[in-house]
């Protein structure tokens, strides 16, 4: 393997990791504040990506408008299911919410396929050639994807650390009882949490759709890698989710020359297992939304 190959693999791994990072962030936020693994995360992405396609099909050619449409749809579906399902399950065992979220995932996806069918969709985007630096190829679209992901993360961290609502989220994550005692109204905080989660999913779904294709199983298939990234980084740690996702992406791409493209997914899990054996709470474990 030459240095050029290595660089290309690193780039691919980073981009794939950043794609996973957004749903992983959404997962870890819910995990930290609402305290259950939300299996519907992937299907929020799918619904939002289809909303983006819908906006484009409606005549608005601009990918920017499509993105806004997707974010609105993502936030909406996330809030609807919070109000309907997850609010009613607060205070119950996490497994109850987890199983309900599997139900939400099935329900959301089947409603989608009932109306839009199973055909694949693609976003209308002009295709551009990659920049070639002596064999190291860099795609402009990948740069946009990476930049967008980083901006979204920066905004999220700003929200969590610089705004009152973010501080309240972190307070609830840290100690729900204490937060209540301090007069934090968790209902309003949770509503904004789910809006943010929906927006993150939507952005992830859009970016995935731009890079690959939009199909009804888009998000569902991303769920397990996103779970793995969250666990690797440590549950409830936003930084951990991002680092975990990028690490898993790079590790699995770098392993391709050695184990082939099928086992690269297994390599990601091996890495996860190793880390968990050394640090049972993940890389940034226990730092629930506090750093």
């Amino acid at each position: 393997m030459t240095l050029v190959d290595l660089c290309n693999l690193l780039i691919n791994g980073t981009i794939e990791g950043l794609l996973i990072a957004l749903p992983a962030l959404a997962l870890t936020l819910v995990m930290g504040v609402a305290r259950f693994p939300n299996a519907a995360t992937g299907d929020y992405m799918t619904v939002a990506a289809y909303a983006g396609i819908g906006v484009q099909a409606w005549g608005a050619a601009s990918i920017f408008l499509a993105g806004l449409g997707a974010i609105a749809a993502g936030a909406a579906i996330s809030i609807i299911f919070y109000l309907w399902v997850f609010r009613a399950l607060r205070g119950r065992a996490p497994v109850a919410s987890l199983v309900a979220s599997i139900g939400v995932a099935f329900f959301a996806r089947s409603m989608l396929t009932l109306f839009v069918g199973h055909d694949q969709q693609t976003f209308n985007l002009p295709l551009v050639r990659a920049w070639n630096f002596g064999g190291v190829r860099l795609l402009p679209t990948d740069l946009y994807v990476a930049a967008l992901a980083l901006i979204a993360m920066a905004l999220l961290f700003a929200l969590l650390h610089l705004t009152p609502i973010g501080r309240q989220m972190r307070a609830i994550a840290d100690n729900p009882d204490l937060a209540r005692a301090c007069g934090i109204r968790s209902g309003r905080v949770l509503l904004s949490l789910w809006a943010v989660v929906g927006a993150l999913c939507a952005l992830g779904g859009m970016m995935f759709g731009v890079k690959a294709v939009v199909s009804p199983e888009l998000g569902w298939e991303l769920l397990i890698p996103a779970f793995a990234a969250m666990i690797l980084g440590g549950i409830g740690s936003p930084i951990g989710a991002v680092v975990g996702a990028v690490l898993l992406g790079i590790a699995s791409e770098l392993s391709v020359p050695f184990v082939g493209p099928s086992y690269k997914i297994a390599v990601a899990f091996l890495l996860l297992l190793l880390v968990l054996l050394l640090r049972p709470r993940g890389l940034f474990g226990k730092a629930i939304l506090s750093r």
């Binding site: 309907w84 139900g103 329900f107 089947s110």
Partner: peptide
């Protein structure tokens, strides 16, 4: 519809 019903039942 079948998948929706399974999902709904779970919820």
């Amino acid at each position: 519809v079948r998948l929706a019903l399974v999902g709904l039942a779970l919820i």
